[in-house]
Amino acid sequence: MNIILISILTMGGLGLFFAAILAIAFEKLKVEENPMVEKVLNALPGLNCGACGYTGCHDFAEKIVAQGSLDNLRCPPGGSAVVEDLSEILGISADEPIKRRAVVKCGGSTSLARDRAEYAGIQTCVAAELVGGGPKACTYGCLGFGDCAKACPFDALYIGKDGLAHVVFEKCTACGLCVTACPRKIIELIPCSNQIIVNCSSTDRCSLVREVCKVGCIGCKICERTAPGVYVVEDTLARVVFEKGDAAAEPAIVKCPTKCIVKL
């Protein structure tokens, strides 16, 4: 009994002693921080997602204060609301940045795109990609093991029953983590104002695409002819010029022979 009491007293005493020393040291060695940094930090979302390219929100806040403006600095999760707050704190006016969201550019669901092998290995896209380019016959399409969904800190991505990754746009903050997580690089951040995309990433030529997928872009250039300047075909893959807007891109949807131009 006695020894328990002594032990408790000793440890408690030691703890108190060191706590006191640390408390004193904390006061004596306090680092005066720029109050601006704290203000800016409070305005930031505080997710520490690193999408801005700095290690955490604190680093980013220091950078903003040091620079005194928001040029070339971006906080994707915060969006325009945070930009407004920050501009107010810094006393500057800021151009509203284009709000973006992620889209997975592949429509080759299990029923539409062929598999060429059965894959039973480690269930991640990266691993599957390493084994001879994955089970999917198309070497550009979504593998559907959900590396992007795992990378997303906001649960904005999920793998649907069709075996493809889908984005919940309401949750997406365009942080870009899924873009880097995808081994096939088929996730793109597009402006929120645009609804129409070319839902394919394959740069294979026509016959190869047709062989593996029913909804792949074959590079026929019909969209380019229907809406000149709105679609650009490079490497037998079409892409939308988002600045031109949805209205101009609309007519090509029905014209596309493989139906790979879709409205989200």
Binding site: I3, I6, S7, T10, M11, L14, G15, F18, A19, I21, L22, A25, F26, L29, K30, V31
Partner: peptide, 27 residues
């Protein structure tokens, strides 16, 4: 007569020292 407290107390010591050194270097 408390040698069994060595581990615990040493860990407290080390943790506090590191905290202290951290504050010192930061300053």
């Amino acid at each position: 007569n408390l040698p069994f407290l060595q581990y615990v107390s040493f860990i407290i010591v080390i943790a506090s020292l590191v905290q202290f050194v951290e504050m010192f270097i930061r300053k």
